[in-house]
């Protein structure tokens, strides 16, 4: 007898949340499909239908997104690599560059530069109509002496 749809969704969602929580561990597809109580191939198909990515692609996506967060908080690239579950700095750097079109170091530098610019000149990041409507333009210009 086929499983009811709600049961299948519940299992796929559970597997996705499992990846969201355990991304930093050395996960493989067998762990994840076991978590969902599916056969590997059935699981990959259902997961891709639900999220548009295979479980492996999704795991990479989560790891890269978490890596971006660590980089934004100034964590050194060499530490970020292991914090998000990559086994070697070179595989991390290679994959990061492939996905983000810049190295982790470049990403971190550009983010830091943007934060500095944001601090120095916040109005240049906000469409003027909003700043004016919020009444931010004059107090801010005064505070920044410009």
């Amino acid at each position: 007898m086929p499983y009811p749809k709600a049961y299948l969704y519940h299992r796929v969602v559970k597997a996705k949340l499992f990846i969201d929580t355990n991304f930093y561990l050395p996960l493989d597809l067998n762990n994840i499909s076991n978590e969902a109580f599916f056969s590997k191939y059935h699981f990959i198909r259902l997961f891709k239908n639900s999220y548009g990515r295979t479980p492996h692609q999704y795991l990479i996506y989560v790891r890269i997104e978490k890596a971006k967060n660590y980089l934004k908080h100034g964590v050194p690239v060499s530490e970020v690599c292991f914090k998000v579950g990559f086994e070697s700095p070179s595989s991390f750097a290679g994959l990061f560059k492939k996905v983000c079109q810049q190295t982790p170091g470049e990403y971190q530098r550009l983010y830091k530069r943007r934060q500095e610019a944001l601090k120095k000149s916040p109005l240049s990041f906000i469409p003027n109509c909003f700043s004016e409507q919020k009444g931010w333009v004059y107090p801010l210009k005064e505070a920044l002496n410009c």
């Binding site: 749809k5 709600a6 969704y9 796929v12 969602v13 996705k16 949340l17 639900s50």
Partner: peptide
């Protein structure tokens, strides 16, 4: 979203 039922559950 890609799949409404899955997103709803999540």
């Amino acid at each position: 979203c890609t799949d409404l039922n899955a997103t709803y559950e999540e």
